[in-house]
């Protein structure tokens, strides 16, 4: 389905066009992994919302990305519980293995790493999201086993 149609379909589930803005942004972000100006313009046209309004909303939320991301987005929590359980060591390991600093993207465009706020999985800390997959009870032993599955 054409992306414009997909957004318009989606907007029917909401009482007004503005209500559909956040999900519509997810729809276009899914395409390229980030929101380019063109992507924001697509949403603006599909929902007939002002471009500036779309941009204002899109830049407010951390889950929308405004520069190109790797094919897979690693979002690792380093809040209190995860930190105590060794999340920071995992950041170092990832950096060491892939040359990937928090906020950065690997040269081959495979991974981007984002340090995220509490993921709500403190009982199974440390935890991370890779794209939309949830992974918990991470250790130095299993982290690469998981990540290597993402090409």
């Amino acid at each position: 389905m054409d992306i414009m149609d997909e957004i318009r379909d989606l907007s029917r589930k909401y009482p007004d066009r503005r209500g559909a803005l956040l999900p519509a942004l997810y729809v276009v972000q899914k395409e390229a992994g980030w929101l380019s100006q063109e992507a924001l313009d697509t949403v603006s046209r599909a929902l007939n919302l002002p471009q500036a309004t779309v941009k204002g909303v899109a830049t407010f939320y951390a889950m929308y990305k405004h520069r190109p991301m790797g094919r897979h987005l690693i979002q690792l929590c380093t809040n209190v519980a995860c930190m105590i359980m060794g999340a920071e060591r995992l950041v170092d390991l990832i950096s060491g293995r892939y040359g990937l600093e928090p906020g950065g993207t690997t040269d081959d465009g495979r991974f981007s790493l984002v340090i995220m706020e509490c993921i709500g999985a403190c009982d199974r800390a440390p935890a991370m999201l890779v794209d939309t997959d949830f992974h918990a009870d991470l250790t130095a032993d299993n982290i690469f086993e998981i990540l290597e599955k993402y090409e």
Binding site: Q37, L40, D41, P50, Q51, A52, T53, V54, K55, G56, T59, F60, Y61, A62
Partner: peptide, 14 residues
């Protein structure tokens, strides 16, 4: 509109 958030909020055109 206001773009960004917190102390990085700026008024900008599209």
């Amino acid at each position: 509109s206001v773009t960004g958030r917190g102390s990085h909020s700026f008024v900008e055109p599209f």
